[in-house]
């Protein structure tokens, strides 16, 4: 599968990663190469095969649906780039 520049720009937007215009061509080449390589999987017939969605070799246990921590606001905020009055700060989202 060859990806063009526009598709790479679209994926980058979906992933919220800014890719400089000048890098799009090279990146399209790299990603296309990987996607072409994984196309070998088309050689395998998977008719009737269930997808493996979990690896668990042992049955996961249930736990009580209870509160196990809390009251650690300052710890949670300690690593934030910007906070005010006990809140995270982000650019304005509502006009």
């Amino acid at each position: 599968m060859a990806l063009d520049k526009a598709t790479v720009a679209r994926i980058a937007a979906l992933a919220r990663i800014k890719v400089p215009e000048a890098e799009l061509d090279a990146l399209a080449g790299e990603l296309s190469k990987i996607l072409t390589w994984v196309e070998q999987l088309n050689e395998i017939d998977v008719t009737g095969v269930e997808p493996m969605t979990a690896v668990a070799h042992a049955r996961p246990p249930l736990r009580a649906d209870g509160v196990t921590d809390g009251g650690i606001r300052d710890k949670i905020l300690a690593n934030a780039p910007e906070t005010t009055n006990g809140f995270f700060v982000v650019p304005k989202v509502v006009e």
């Binding site: 690593n79 934030a80 780039p81 910007e82 982000v90 650019p91 989202v93």
Partner: peptide, 15 residues
């Protein structure tokens, strides 16, 4: 937002 690097942007998405 919550940890690590922040590079400012005009909008939330740009950030």
């Amino acid at each position: 937002v919550r940890f690590g690097l922040r590079v400012p942007g005009e909008t939330l998405d740009a950030m």
